[in-house]
Amino acid sequence: METIYQFFNGNLLLIYLLIFTIILGFEVISKVPTVLHTPLMSGANAISGVVIIGAIILIRQTEPGDYVGLVLGLIGVILGMINALGGFAVTNRMLEMFKRKKTTK
């Protein structure tokens, strides 16, 4: 239990941030029209590519000789990048279609 108290006291700001972001997230996204469900989902999906930040830091902290760490980190960066860049690109492609029709109408 002691370690939990320590973690809590040491990360108080992070925990505040966690709680407020949950509230903020629900407030910001709660009123999505049906039209945008798929783009919102794939856009949000792209954002979950933030794990790439962790993978970058991981590689940077790895010893140059630690090939297991480097390869795992490399896979992490590749997967994260596919998720992030691919996600934003495909969302943009979808939204482009929504936009084009608006001008033709």
Partner: peptide, 28 residues
């Protein structure tokens, strides 16, 4: 999972991004 990974790295940015996705997925 992105948010919890953010806590491992003490990275507020990962935490915020992950939680926002968690919220949007939950709403949907």
């Amino acid at each position: 999972s992105a948010a919890t990974a953010g806590i491992i790295y003490h990275n507020q940015f990962m935490l915020v991004g992950g939680i926002l996705v968690g919220a949007s997925g939950t709403i949907l």
